[in-house]
Amino acid sequence: MGNQGSTRRVVGAAIVEAGRVLACARSSPPEAAGKWEFPGGKVETGESDVAALIRECEEELGVRIEVGDRVGHDVPLGRGDAVLGVYLARLRDEVRPRPLEHAELRWLAPDELDTVTWLPADVPIVAALRPILASYSR
């Protein structure tokens, strides 16, 4: 029932502050633990990408975000039954992100993006994000 046969959407937030982006280390599942990603998650039935991102960032980081432009293109996930879309975002208030569901959080400058091991789906997003971050620091 529901959306069988359709492609599931997963969304991520590239939260940017002072020319740096927030990266989150996975704590689970075992094959992903210790790898880095952008915060986010599955888009629920009837939910927009933006609404899903706002909800996921509250659940995972305890923060409210404002969602901006897309970063790069959709990236196929798994066996191609899902796609990842990442959006620029910024914190809406002074509340700092906390790792409620992640092992660790780091703010990465453009020249620090390669200091962590990204999940495969996030690698093309990191490449698309690099010039965007560089433009913040000019």
Rank of each mutant, 00 (worst) to 15 (best):
G68H: 07
I65V: 15
E94W: 10
E58M: 14
G85E: 04
V83R: 01
A23M: 10
A33E: 01
C24A: 15
K35I: 06
V43W: 02
G62Q: 13
R55I: 09
G34C: 02
A13N: 11
E94L: 14
P110K: 12
G34F: 00
P110E: 03
C57E: 02
V86C: 14
E47K: 08
L61K: 07
L91D: 06
R79Q: 14
W36D: 04
A32R: 07
G46A: 04
L100T: 09
F38I: 01
V63L: 11
E104D: 14
L61R: 00
A109M: 10
Y87Q: 04
C57G: 04
H102A: 14
V43F: 06
L53A: 07
D74N: 11
V21Q: 06
A89S: 08
E37F: 02
A13R: 15
C57Q: 02
E112R: 14
V50P: 00
G72N: 04
K42S: 15
H73E: 15
E101C: 15
R9V: 12
L108K: 05
K35L: 01
A13V: 13
G41F: 03
G62Y: 13
E66N: 11
A103P: 07
A52M: 07
E47S: 00
R26T: 04
V21C: 10
G34M: 06
R90V: 11
K42P: 13
G68P: 05
H102K: 14
P97K: 05
A103I: 06
L108D: 03
L100N: 10
I15G: 03
G78K: 07
R79M: 13
D74R: 13
A32N: 08
E94V: 10
G62H: 13
Y87I: 06
G78W: 01
I15E: 05
G40I: 06
A109G: 07
V95N: 06
E60K: 15
P30R: 00
E112M: 12
W36N: 03
G34V: 07
L61S: 01
V16E: 03
G72A: 01
R9L: 13
E17N: 12
R20G: 01
D93A: 00
K35R: 13
A18P: 00
R79Y: 08
P97M: 01
P97L: 03
A25M: 15
V43L: 04
K42C: 11
R79K: 15
I15L: 13
E44M: 10
A89I: 08
D69W: 07
E60D: 14
L105H: 10
V43G: 08
D49Y: 04
G19W: 06
A18I: 03
I15D: 00
